[in-house]
Structure formats: C-alpha cells, structure tokens
C-alpha cells in the first residue's frame, strides 16, 4: 500500500529508525510480524525488503492537521548492510514509499507462562522489544508472568539498542558484547547458559531473534536444558506473502522438507528447524 516517510533518523552510529505513515495499515500488530518495504518507484534495488515491526503508533490528529496525520505510523529499525538499506537510509520525510503488511506469524505467550526470557542479537532486537512491550502489557492483567529477562548481545556497545524500551517494560537486562565495551565480554550464550540451567527454570520460555549463528547456539542451549524456544528466523525474500517459495527454511521431517519463513514463520519452535 502507498504510504509516506514520516521520519528517518539515526539512532546510533550504525542504526536508523524509519517511521512510515500508512493510512490503510492496522493500528495494532503482534510482536514478530513484519512488513515488506520498497521505494514507490521500481528500479534498483529491485526487490522489496523485509523488516520486523518495531512499533506502531497513531499520531493524535491535532488542530491544523491534514488528513494523513491520523494515519498509523509503522516503525522499523535497520542497519545499513547492503544496497537496499543504503537506499532506504537516503529517504526523506514526505517521500512516497510502498509497504505491505503486517505479514507472517508472531511470538505466542502460553497461558501458563511463568518466566519469559528474551534474547536479541544486534539488529534482531525490534521484534524482541515489541514482545517486551506486549508482555509488560499483559503482565498487569495476568499476574502469572513473574519474570521478564532480556539478554542483548552485539559486537560492540553500538549494537546494543532499545535499552529504554526494556527498562520501561520492567525487564531485567543482561548485556554482552564481543569486545567488552558494554556489559560482559563474550557471547550471549555464555551468560544465558547458567540462567537456563538453574532449577527454577520451569514454565520458562525463550524468545530469540538475531543472526543465524546466535540463533543456532540459543536453540542448542534450549534443547540442552529442555526449555521451549521460539526463534524468529531470516531468509532472502522476494514477496513476503507465500507466492515465490523463495524463503525456505529446512525443517525436521522425513527426507528433505522445508517451510516458508514468510508464511509459516518468521517465528518457529526452535526444535522444528534444522540448524
């Protein structure tokens, strides 16, 4: 659907935050859902890009507002990694942009959830921040969820994002960086491991999003400690809605079998996937 750039700003040296005012977009979403985004002209880069939804807010339509002011603003976070994101980083407020979504499935919170442990690596953080907000919201109504912990990992301190969101959600935050510039020096799994192997790790569910190596390691830990883990995975995508069959991920089953990340995912039970 046709939309316009509301803002596009740097939030740290390597990361940007894009807001898209999309009149026809729903005002709510579920953590894990994503959108396909491309400039409104067709050219280079050619394919739309997939981004997890970080937040959606509806601007109050105040006094001298034009009609577009009340449109939901869909926010994403991104890092300049290739030509697609480079092109995105040059877009300015008011420019037209195409957005399709919300797409895909979402994280689920089991009714008897006791403790939610969220894990995000680098630019995997937006759906995790969205989930933290969602958990905080229902924590008020469902007293069940005793604990909310977040493990954030990155190469350096620059890769640690959304700290304020996690604070607001009342989460215990654990940070690791590979160079030790913030939090514990090392890998996310180094600090996650002891937490999962404690005796009170029952009714605990892991929620993870991040680079493939990290996800595989977290999935391995989950398996080891018998903890369920929902992982949001990535794949090259052309369409985002199940038409091209390009976004396959291998799942366990008889012989080779695949699922589509855009339609069956992006969130999967980590035990289902061949890592």
């Amino acid at each position: 659907m046709r939309a316009t750039v509301a803002f596009n700003r740097q939030i740290s040296p390597a990361y940007l935050q894009l807001g898209i005012a999309a009149p026809a977009f729903p005002a709510t979403f579920r953590a894990g859902e994503f959108v396909m985004i491309r400039p409104s002209w067709v050219g280079d880069p050619f394919l739309p890009r997939a981004f997890s939804i970080y937040r959606i807010f509806t601007r109050p339509s105040g006094g001298a507002s034009s009609a577009g002011d009340a449109a939901p603003v869909v926010e994403i976070l991104y890092k300049i990694l290739g030509r697609g994101t480079q092109c995105l980083s040059r877009m300015e407020p008011g420019q037209e942009i195409e957005i399709l979504g919300p797409l895909g499935n979402s994280f689920t919170l089991p009714d008897d959830l006791g403790q939610a442990v969220l894990v995000a690596g680098g630019i995997g953080v937006p759906p995790i921040a969205a989930l933290a907000a969602q958990v905080a919201q229902i924590r008020n109504s469902k007293f069940e969820i005793r604990n909310l912990d977040v493990f954030l990992g990155g190469k350096t301190s620059e890769d640690i994002l959304c700290l304020k969101d996690f604070e607001e959600a009342g989460a215990g935050v654990h940070i690791t960086t590979e160079d030790g510039s913030l939090g514990t020096r090392g890998l996310i799994t180094d600090v996650l491991r002891p937490c999962l192997l404690t005796p009170h790790a029952s009714r605990l569910t892991l929620y993870a999003c991040g680079p493939p190596g990290m996800l595989a390691a977290v999935a391995g830990l989950a398996e080891e400690s018998g903890v369920p883990c929902q992982a949001s995975v990535e794949a090259n995508m052309a369409c985002g809605f199940g038409a091209c069959m390009g976004c396959a991920v291998e799942v366990k089953g008889d012989g080779k079998s695949y699922k589509l990340v855009c339609k069956d995912g992006p969130v999967f039970d980590s035990r289902e996937i061949v890592w």
Partner: peptide
C-alpha cells in the same frame, strides 16, 4: 517435490535469480 535447499533466491541487477 520438497524443492531446493536455501538460499533459493537473490536479487540481481533489474531482476532476480531463483532456484526454487
């Protein structure tokens, strides 16, 4: 047919490459 192992698609100049 289960299809090919990923990655199955990649963007190329003014188009894409696929092996579904």
């Amino acid at each position: 047919r289960p299809g090919n192992p990923p990655p199955r698609i990649v963007e190329t100049p003014a188009g894409m490459l696929n092996a579904i």
